[in-house]
Design a protein around this nucleic acid. Structure first.
Lengths: 206, 206
DNA sequence: TTGATCATGTAATCCGTTACATGATTCT
DNA sequence: AGAATCATGTAACGGATTACATGATCAA
């Protein structure tokens, strides 16, 4: 259900084809909400059927065409309504912590591999998000630039502030996951060396 | 796919009926992986069909019966294999941060409501997880007690250590989300009071 | 006898993933 | 001529959610 609002958010800054949308998607909102093209095209058709967007068939070269979508008033209102509505939270479903809870059933090497992978995973997310932060600060993200161009000057500061704040939150989260995995590696070492002593509690919770 | 391993993890400490499993589930592994009973019962049947578990029909009262499930050798091995296998990470899909990124399209009041709800949500998760931590320390969780009873004394320390460590990670994460939402409330205030000044960056990233 | 709890499901639908599938256009 | 990229999907499957559905047993 979030996918359509992510798409509306992008289309609200100006008309795009499915293909452009998909590209923009992976470079902007895709950092918080992943969607493959095989999901985007059908969703656009559904949104058109529900009158949230309108597609305009455009000629391209001799025989090819492409559909340029723009947001309808209904679609714009649907987005605004959604923004005013309390967000529904999904129930916890966390494979990494599920596995961590039963790591005594894995070999120490597998446990280490698990934590190393967890670190790598979040390091790579972190790099993406920190990159976005920089692009926000340098007003260097094409989507953001287009958005600011169609934004009332009085609202530009807020627009930038909330984007920045979003990525700050993601960066903070990544740091916590990385720190946790690092302590996990230490824990495996401690347990393997047979000592009864456990590593000291993390500073984060001290 | 994680559901069946969560179920195997519980059944590995001893046979349970679907109903008992469902209860235990919500009180233990359900803290990291939610599943409703309407998903648990069919999954158990599927697992039985795949020979991971075996159900034994037991009489109960005059006419009623219940199925007691226990893990087969195949099932046990499947669990152990899974524990050795690299975990697959799902792509980001984060409704809260998706919405946060477009909060300039909401009223300040809606933005505040969003952040307050985010705090409440994570405070309540936090309370659950901190409760679990205490129950681990006091060896006061029935499932954990049963598990330790069937665990080689040499492995008991590791069993407890990994459980504790898992919940520590969740607690850390909850703290970060709560701190982020708190800063979000401040940000809304700052933006509303029209000042160009932004709240100072969080200590977490300083 | 009434309510809590024990006990077990089915059906419809939605969202997302993976794999498959095709062809035009433009640049080098 | 060939590669990159523009452009748009379908099909099959799996996992999760929600709503619906039923009935027995046991303790107060």
């Amino acid at each position: 259900m979030s996918l359509r609002y992510a798409l509306l958010a992008l289309l609200r800054v100006g008309p795009l084809s499915g293909y452009e949308l998909q590209k923009q998607f992976s470079m902007s909102v895709g950092h918080v909400w992943h969607a493959p093209d095989s999901q985007i095209y059908p969703e656009l058709r559904k949104m058109e059927a529900e009158n949230l967007i309108e597609g305009e068939e455009q000629p391209r070269g001799q025989r090819a065409t492409r559909r340029l979508y723009h947001v309808t008033d209904t679609g714009n209102q649907a987005f605004l309504d959604w923004m005013q509505t309390p967000l529904e939270y999904a129930r916890v479903r966390d494979p990494a912590h599920l596995r961590a809870a039963y790591l005594e059933a894995a070999s120490p090497e597998a446990a280490r591999a698990f934590f190393r992978r967890h670190m790598d995973q979040w390091e790579s997310e972190l790099a993406q998000w920190e990159g976005e932060l920089q692009r926000i600060d340098q007003v260097d993200n094409p989507m953001l630039v287009r958005r600011l161009a169609v934004t009332d000057p009085a609202d530009r500061e807020r627009t930038i502030a909330f984007k920045r704040f979003t990525y700050e939150g993601l960066v903070d989260r990544a740091h916590v996951e990385i720190a946790w995995a690092r302590r996990g590696l230490e824990l495996v070492d401690t347990l393997e060396s047979g000592g009864g002593a456990r590593p000291e509690p993390s500073a984060a919770r001290a």
